[in-house]
Design a binder for these strands. Structure first.
Lengths: 232, 232
DNA sequence: GTCTATAGGTGGATAGAC
DNA sequence: GTCTATCCACCTATAGAC
């Protein structure tokens, strides 16, 4: 018999005052759905991880899927907020892009289950549960990112023969891919499954920024010799 | 008891016509595991999709996980073979990289469940079931890709201040991310969940090649004094 | 090789005591 | 608000007929 041990709520991240049972359940759900996936996660797993009784989950949430949705909604909302703010204070488009990649890496390190949950939502539900929040991100952070690139293009610092929105996806993709395919990348780099350290994530994020800025940099005026590739 | 176990009979002949029952089951497993995931896929789903009886699966495979592993093994082996060959005939490093991105897109279009299965393996099993095959890809296709970049660097066509292996990951990541995050990218680009068409995938792959080549291109010699552009 | 039937186990969800 | 006890559907895997 397991003794009461009321809501010990030793949530790993104990963000703030996650005193409430409801939050403890959502925190547990984040970790458990991330590591096991929606179907493989049972109500009993969630209850055990949250330190509460299984029946209690049904007091706070209608059913398993509702609980999942609320967890995801909370997560993506938090993420979107964090994304938007960081690019603001940058002096130049270059600086803004560097900040963006660096921040991507920090988020991946701080909330390692974030990419897992988002990827699971993509494959399990085709992002249907997150459509609204992704649309919000598109309207804020992604739009800002595109704006940064377009500004660089208008100011003559970035080349104009790349589509700004596709370029923005190229920017996002690099560190995001590293976060998703981390075990595979570890093998590709010769270190094995678990070899990608946080420090390596940061290194790669710096590389990604270098790569991006090299790609976007306006070609030197070039001494009129003309380039064979059609420009402009 | 363990049946025949003629595991290698399908290497070359798995093209189209599902000759044997065993192959039909593996084909069904590819589709079903991709769309539902490992846990949510039941033996009955697999049997129904393959058009056979549930008990028959246990005649050909020891259990559900063995079936899954064999399906994944077959898939990744096929994929690795396809990857390796395509870069060979390229005249220049630039051409090789263009071919690589284009081929990534074609694979994603031809085998749409491939990224899904690989991503599921990543999140569900941390790529443990695919370690061997990924190591093989690392030793062949990825090594070739790195070699192409290094060759361009040695020949003075590519800049040398980018790490070749990180650059190779930047190359891979762009189209791969598009394949994984397809619904989300659709939303980001303003079209909605299902808006990314095969044609758009090809467009993006061309963009990714442009982006990559712009990033890698050696900066113009520049009148020696050069601007030591401010890098923190 | 392929099927029917079923054993044995687990999961989501509810009723109701406290 | 939190727990005990439980129902029923469904799932994996096996036994054994044909």
């Amino acid at each position: 018999m397991t003794p009461p041990e009321t809501a010990r709520a030793d949530t790993a991240a104990a963000t703030a005052a996650t005193a409430s049972t409801r939050d403890a359940i959502l925190d547990a759900a984040e970790r458990t759905f991330a590591s096991r996936g929606f179907t493989a996660t049972t109500i009993k797993h969630l209850a055990a991880e949250a330190g509460v009784n299984t029946a209690l989950l049904y007091y706070y949430f209608a059913d398993k899927e509702t609980l999942y949705r609320e967890m995801l909604r909370r997560l993506v909302t938090r993420f979107a907020a964090q994304l938007s703010q960081q690019m603001q204070g940058a002096a130049s488009p270059e600086e803004a892009l560097r900040r963006f990649s660096a921040m991507q890496a920090e988020v991946l390190i701080d909330v390692p289950h974030l990419p897992t949950l988002l990827v699971r939502e993509l494959v399990d539900f085709h992002a249907e549960h997150a459509e609204e929040q992704i649309a919000h991100i598109a309207a804020t952070a992604f739009k800002t990112l595109c704006g940064v690139i377009e500004r660089g293009q208008r100011e003559g610092r970035f080349r104009t023969d790349l589509d700004a929105r596709f370029a923005a996806i190229s920017v996002v993709s690099q560190v995001a891919y590293m976060g998703i395919a981390r075990p595979a990348v570890g093998i590709l780099l010769g270190g094995g499954l678990g070899s990608v350290t946080p420090e390596m994530m940061r290194d790669f994020a710096r590389h990604a920024a270098d790569f991006t800025l090299a790609a976007l940099a306006a070609p030197k005026p070039a001494p009129r010799k003309a380039s064979r590739k059609g420009r402009k």
